[in-house]
């Protein structure tokens, strides 16, 4: 076992992990932060995307021990200080950017990473950035629309509802 200490959503946490413990398992099982979803566990689907030191990564394909000392942000850290939904989360609700919701935590975390680097993305840039996030319900249109709306752009001309 290795002892690790890191910051998760602004709070200092620590725990003992095996070498093989994945960051996704540490978040879900040690910290009970079950908003980070395990969709495929093969780094294909992106449901487990979290931010490590500000960068989007797949938590199912990073060892918890690698995150020792890191600053981690999960979907639970995306709400506003008063507990209301953050801008991207609210946009997903307003624009029906989810159906079953399983992929949504990863979608929101990827969207946040995109908007940090590119505050005004085109529809094409959003679609390309979401290459590693799979959704089997929506057909992506409303996810793309929600992210455009969250960036403050006019989405009235995007056709699909």
């Amino acid at each position: 076992m290795t002892s690790i200490s890191l910051s998760v959503n602004g709070k200092s946490v620590s725990g003992d992990v095996e070498g093989r413990t994945l960051l996704s398992a540490f978040l879900r099982e040690n910290l009970q932060l079950t908003g980070t979803h395990i969709g495929c566990d093969t780094s294909q689907c992106g449901a487990c995307v979290v931010h490590v030191d500000g960068q989007a990564i797949k938590a199912c394909t990073m060892l918890a021990a690698e995150a020792d000392g890191a600053d981690v942000r999960t979907i639970e850290g995306m709400e506003n200080a008063d507990g209301s939904l953050g801008v991207i989360q609210q946009a997903f609700q307003d624009h029906h950017g989810l159906q079953c919701g399983f992929c949504t935590p990863g979608m929101v975390m990827s969207a946040a990473a995109l908007l940090k680097d590119n505050p005004n993305p085109t529809e094409g840039e959003i679609r390309e950035y979401l290459e590693g996030n799979l959704c089997r319900c929506t057909g992506y249109h409303n996810i793309v629309k929600a992210i455009m709306a969250a960036s403050g752009q006019d989405v009235s001309k995007i056709a699909a509802e």
Binding site: G46, I57, E131, G132
Partner: peptide
């Protein structure tokens, strides 16, 4: 290469 999250690792 891969997707954005893969490229960050």
């Amino acid at each position: 290469i891969g997707d954005p999250a893969v490229r960050n690792r």
